[in-house]
Computed example of a mutant assay.
Amino acid sequence: MSRFKPVGKQRTSEEVVNQVRGQLAAGELAPGERLPAERELARHLNVSRSALREGLRTLEIAGIVELRKGRTGGAFITAGNPKVVSDSMADLLRLGNVSWADLTEARIWIEEIIVRVACERATPQDHAALEENIRQAMDLFEKGQLMKKTEVLIEFHNILARATGNPVLVMVTRMLTDMLRYFTRRLGSETTRAVFRSRRRFMKAFVARDVDAAVKEMERNLIKVHRLYLMLAKAGQVRPRSARIA
């Protein structure tokens, strides 16, 4: 375990974090790997056990380390947790640093890339998963379960991202849809069938691999949703900081 070096006496917990991150960057630590026992690791790093614990807690919050209890417990390197990024973005929303318009604008740009890639790479299984998502959402709509319907419709975008086969696009989409959920839980759910008509037009183009038509329909729908939720915000006196989306 000589790969860990004694750290300086200043801000030792941060240096613990930096060393673990450095080992990850160098490929010397991998997901699933267990770090040495607390006493041993503290000795290698030349830090107090309290400083080590503080550093490990920081790494846990960052989604880099999982701390497990029990005889088989310890500190384990994780495979990464995109929810950490989503939570940070949600905090920015709560602080008013990201608006509904910012979110819509980013989604339009990113969804275009996703639709173009997924249109080419999607398998029949991906098409079936998207169709099943629409069916489930319609069923919930008919039952009057509008918020559950909205949750399912939001998941449509995650299924679409997975069809790209690109884990970065999947992670970014998960972050954006988590942010979207934050807004919809505050503002409520729309109550029309328009979204289903849009989904059907999208799927017709998507399955036919008509990239431009699919992109156009997705953008049209995102702009409509943007305007709808601004109306809901005004009606409910909830005012997310907004800017005009053309």
Rank of each mutant, 00 (worst) to 15 (best):
G144L: 04
V47F: 02
V117F: 02
G73F: 03
A208G: 02
C119K: 01
A62H: 12
M1N: 11
R11S: 10
G236M: 05
L228M: 11
L24P: 14
E28G: 02
R193F: 13
Q237M: 07
E112G: 11
A26Q: 14
A208C: 03
R11W: 05
R185F: 15
M218F: 07
E142R: 14
G74D: 01
R241F: 08
Q10G: 14
E217K: 08
R199D: 13
R68E: 10
L103E: 10
T78R: 10
V170W: 15
A122S: 08
N18E: 15
E151I: 01
L180Q: 11
A118K: 05
V7N: 15
R116S: 13
A213N: 09
L67M: 10
K143R: 13
L146E: 13
M175P: 14
D91C: 03
E120A: 04
L35F: 10
R185Y: 14
N18F: 15
R174S: 12
K149D: 03
T78Y: 07
T173Q: 07
A208V: 04
E33C: 10
G188P: 12
K148M: 02
D102T: 09
R201V: 14
A106C: 07
G55C: 07
L92F: 11
A208P: 03
L140F: 05
V211M: 04
S13P: 12
P240V: 09
D102Q: 09
G73S: 05
D178I: 06
G27M: 09
T191A: 12
E105F: 03
N158D: 06
M147A: 08
L29N: 03
R121N: 06
L169I: 15
L140M: 06
G236C: 04
V238K: 08
R68Y: 03
V84H: 13
W109V: 10
M231C: 02
R185M: 10
L103G: 06
G144T: 08
D87H: 01
P240G: 11
R49T: 09
G165Y: 14
G73K: 01
E131R: 03
R162E: 04
E155I: 00
S48C: 04
R135K: 01
M218H: 06
R116N: 07
W100M: 05
T173R: 05
E112W: 00
R227E: 10
A62D: 15
H226Q: 06
G80E: 12
L160V: 06
I61W: 01
V17D: 14
L103I: 13
V207G: 08
A243E: 07
L169Q: 12
A194G: 14
T173Y: 10
H157L: 01
T184Y: 07
A214N: 10
L176F: 09
S99L: 02
M175G: 12
M138H: 01
L230Q: 13
D139E: 10
L228F: 09
E60R: 08
E14F: 14
M218L: 08
G70D: 02
S198K: 15
P240Y: 04
V152Y: 01
V84K: 11
A137T: 01
I134G: 00
A118L: 06
V20N: 12
S2Y: 01
S50H: 05
E38V: 05
Q19G: 05
N46E: 01
S189D: 05
H44V: 00
F196M: 15
A26S: 13
E155L: 00
